[in-house]
Design a protein around this nucleic acid. Structure first.
Length: 848
RNA sequence: GCCCGCGUGGUGGAAUGGUAGACACAGGGGACUUAAAAUCCCCAGGCAGAAAUGCCGUGCCGGUUCGAGUCCGGCCGCGGGUACCA
């Protein structure tokens, strides 16, 4: 009997697949297609367990659909632009390009042994000029269509390094390298008009039936449609040409509870007042000395500055409200100004208590309603409340009714206008960095901003750049910027901003359908292959990447690069959970954290020095925190099938998993057992006998269960059923013929998960051709029928006994049998039951 | 802060509102072996009990229901996102 040696088996079958070209696909109008896509990886240099999990899941689907007769497209590529390559260049020298392509080579080499059913002929990296050149063409088409424009926007500015920082590079309000407090700085940047599509992107969510409900909800909330009131508060005394403050509110019903006007430090009025008021200028400057991220702004201590200005309440000219500058008001949302209603907004209440501003109740709870003290009263908008102060004469009404009435009232009396507002902002795509797709425009002194000519694409990144000083090397490159104006031919300068890497990943799925086309897409190929039938990726992309892709598909349709059917590019989405791991850290002499790889830590101490490490609870595996486990060790030690089997069996795919190294060995043992069983069964000569039928029934039950599991992304339960059937088959004394059939089908059912071992067993048992290309087995419905069922009997909802009855026994007879049961008799003590519930085929409950 | 999830034995987890803990991992016991490894068999939520069995038990508190891990309300803890990490 030969031992299970994964390395031999796996190499052999991978070569066989390659030679036969089984995963290389062509457009074939005569066959139905199926497009499986996993979110493309960032080439960090090493694959991690999250990758293995992601690609194995996709591979199971791809192989299963292949067995179901589909022409399956299953491509792979690299999301290759981005900050880490520049950081590496800064930290250890070298060029981002070399670092990136080396990482791609390394990762591909680690990925190939997994035996994924990928069509590698379609591979590309987003940093290939052939790819980003086509992206530049898309940019020009979208610019022409008015989908892209320029405006000012704020960035994080490191005043010491003189460079723009990403939010991730701002730690506690300071630049990560210089340690200097960051500032906000305004730059002119390029934007996609995604907010013009807010309503459509929102409506279309309802059509995404095969997306997880949580993702649809998150996207809805992100788009954030709200109906509110736009209105103005007149200033009691006009100042610097300002005679009013425009305010947008979603709770106009609380207008009688207004106690102050709050404006953003970036509000034009706040800026205008700075000139005469050095204290205010200092306050605003302090507010601006802070990162731009929403989380930072929202969690920062709420601070305000009284401008001394007064604004008149629109319903009572004698009622004057103080105008404050407040650090928690975003210039980006609404008008950058609010009225504060402390009684019905916790943040406003905290602010009011801090600065001794009035708190005015406008409504109270209908039962035991009390004035607000230190907790704002914010009931759901659908809950009726008792109004104590409403100009439109409301008594009892829900918040929503009051909002509607208020808007109506304001419009009728001409002091306000109902307005639908979205939280979604336009997508800023400019990045002040080198390692990204150059924005193909030219700045000309005479003609202004001029799009590059398409025949000049791709606008390539120059190779001769250095990263010894911070900032964008394109800005300081001696020659690259110099060009001629595409319009007038005079000397001009290239745009040095590059594109957000989210642009790269917003259309790669379309490019896979024709990766070498001379245009961004080719019509027959996108028509045939689009949409992606099953998209699989991390839940961390639930909003940005998926929303941008949905927008981009629409923009590509409007510019003629995608058919109308592809404006929602992903038919079905599955979001896998993350693989997490504890984080190990020590601190350097300055107290800054230093992270360590799990493989360098043993029993809470560094293997090398014995220094104890601080253990931080599990978080998403990330290179920067070094809490990554290398799957290569598992693959080289136990084989790809073991790694694949284990990663699928370990937990439900949508759930986060905390990685522990135990378990892989158990998977390996099991596969060895299956292999031994196959060999034993191959040699069996047992004649047919009475055990044949039970085995065959179990086989069909397993086909059904496993197939359902795969269809429903419940790979872990599919695998549990495969374990159970392996046990059944091993113990069965049935004849050789049926056991061999069962073994062959078991191999087939395992083949999406452990394709190499499955081929080996299939081959051993005389299966025709490759199991990879064999037709998926179908359960015989007659074999699934059970004659008897076991019903638990409950007394008052607690299980006390059980009875086994024929499946179709009438309810009355089941009742009789149940009442006759000893445990039931004992509980009844001669009394009649109060109630008797029989759920056919399920349960009996006796209420006494 | 806000939006979205998740929470079940020692561990990973299973369970269309219907027998909580399937299937595994780790563990314990046994068989085989000179011995070990490998393999095979058995046990295993907690408490009490020799056992039969009883009570408790799905983060916490409350509710709906004949029946709740599952539905509803409120908390606690953890994770993801928060627009320049990808």
């Amino acid at each position: 009997m030969s031992r299970y040696t994964a390395s031999d088996i796996e190499k052999k079958w991978q070569e066989t697949w390659d030679k036969a070209g089984v995963f290389t696909v062509e457009r074939d109008e005569s066959r139905p297609k199926y497009y499986v896509l996993e979110m493309l990886p960032y080439p960090s240099g090493r694959i991690h367990m999250g990758h293995v999990r992601n690609y194995t899941m996709g591979d199971v689907i791809a192989r299963y659909k292949m067995a179901r007769g589909f022409n399956v497209l299953h491509p792979m590529g690299w999301d290759a632009f981005g900050m880490p390559a520049e950081n590496a260049a800064m930290a250890v020298g070298g060029h981002p390009k070399d670092w990136t392509y080396q990482n791609i080579d390394d990762m591909r080499a680690q990925m190939k042994p997994l035996g994924l059913s990928i069509d590698w002929s379609r591979e590309f990296a987003t940093c290939d000029p052939e790819y980003y050149g086509q992206q530049q063409a898309l940019f020009l088409d979208m610019l022409e269509k008015g989908l892209i424009y320029r405006k000012n926007a704020v960035v994080n500015w490191d005043p010491v390094d003189m460079t723009v920082l990403a939010n991730e590079q701002v730690i506690d309000g300071k630049g990560w390298r210089s340690g200097a407090p960051v500032e906000r700085r305004e730059l002119t940047q390029w934007f996609f008009r995604i907010s013009d599509f807010a309503e459509e992107l929102l409506d279309a969510i309802d059509g995404l039936k095969d997306w997880p409900e949580k993702v649809r909800l998150m996207q809805k909330n992100w788009i954030g449609k709200s109906r509110g009131l736009e209105m103005a508060f007149e200033l009691a005394t006009p100042v610097n040409g300002f005679d009013k403050v425009e305010v947008y509110t979603t709770r106009p019903d609380t207008l009688m509870g207004a106690s102050f006007i709050g404006i953003s430090p970036d509000h034009p009025l706040a800026r205008a007042l700075e000139a005469e008021n050095p204290d205010l200028a200092a306050f605003n400057a302090e507010c601006r000395r802070m990162g731009t991220s929403e989380a930072d702004l929202e969690t920062a201590e709420k601070k305000g500055f009284d401008t001394g200005l007064k604004a008149r309440h629109p319903l009572n000219p004698d009622w004057e409200l103080p105008v404050w500058v407040a650090n928690f008001i975003l210039m980006d949302y609404g008008t950058g100004a609010i009225f504060g209603c402390p009684a019905h907004d916790q943040r406003d209440l905290d602010f009011a208590r801090k600065y001794a501003l009035p708190v005015i109740d406008t409504f109270i709870a209908r039962e035991n309603g009390k004035p607000v003290e230190n907790e704002a009263f914010v009931p759901p908008k659908t809950e009726p409340v008792q109004w104590i102060n409403h100009f439109a004469g409301l008594d009892v009404a829900t918040g929503q009714e009051a909002i509607d009435r208020t808007i109506e009232y304001a419009e009728k009396h001409g002091w306000g206008q109902g307005k639908t507002q979205y939280r979604l902002r336009d997508w800023g795509l400019s990045r002040q960095r080198y390692w990204g797709c150059p924005i193909p425009v030219v700045h000309c002194d005479d003609c202004g901003v001029v799009p590059e000519k398409k025949e000049n694409l791709p606008i390539r990144l120059p190779d001769d750049v250095t990263f010894d000083i911070p900032g964008n090397p394109l800005d300081r490159h001696p020659t690259w910027r110099n060009t001629t104006c595409p319009k007038c031919g005079k000397p001009a300068q290239r745009e040095t901003d590059t594109m957000d890497t989210f642009v790269d990943s917003s259309w790669y799925y379309a490019r896979y359908t024709a990766p070498h086309a001379k245009t961004p897409t080719s019509a027959p190929d996108v028509d045939y292959w689009m949409n992606v039938d099953q998209y699989i990726g991390g839940i961390e992309h639930a909003i940005l990447h998926l929303l941008y892709s949905r927008f981009f598909a629409r923009a590509m349709h409007l510019t003629g690069h995608l058919p109308a059917k592809a404006i929602e590019p992903f038919n079905a989405l599955f979001t896998q959970g993350m693989v997490t791991h504890e984080i190990y850290q020590t601190r350097d002499e300055k107290g800054r954290p230093v992270y360590h790889l799990p493989e360098d830590v043993e029993n809470g101490k560094l293997k090398a020095t014995g220094e104890p490490v601080e253990i931080i609870p599990s978080a998403k595996m990330s290179k920067s925190k070094k809490n990554v486990v290398d799957p290569v060790n598992i693959v080289s030690g136990f084989g790809a099938d073991t790694a694949r089997w284990f990663v699928l069996s370990d937990s439900p795919p949508e759930r986060d998993v905390e990685w522990t190294s135990s378990g892989a060995e158990g998977a390996y043992k099991h596969l060895g057992r299956v292999w031994r069983l196959a060999q034993e069964i191959a040699k069996s000569e047992t004649p047919a006998n009475k055990d044949d039928l039970p085995l065959e029934k179990a086989l069909h039950r397993t086909i059904d269960d496993v197939t359902r599991g795969i269809e429903g992304f419940a790979f872990n339960t599919s695998i549990a059923k495969l374990y159970a059937f392996t046990n059944t088959l091993a113990k069965s004394a049935a004849g050789a013929a049926i056991r061999q059939k069962a073994m062959r089908i078991l191999a087939q059912l395992m083949s999406p998960m452990t394709p190499h071992l499955a081929e080996e067993i299939w081959d051993l048992l005389g299966g025709k051709g490759l199991v990879t290309q064999a037709e998926w087995p179908v359960a015989d419905p007659e074999m699934l029928v059970e004659e008897d069922v076991t019903l638990p009997i409950q007394v008052n909802g607690k299980r006390r006994s059980e009875i086994t009855v024929p499946k179709d026994m009438p309810k009355e007879e089941v009742e009789k049998l149940a009442l006759a049961d000893q445990a039931v008799q004992k509980a009844l003590q001669g009394q009649a039951p109060k109630k008797l519930i029989v759920v056919p085929g399920r349960i009996v409950n006796v209420v006494v």
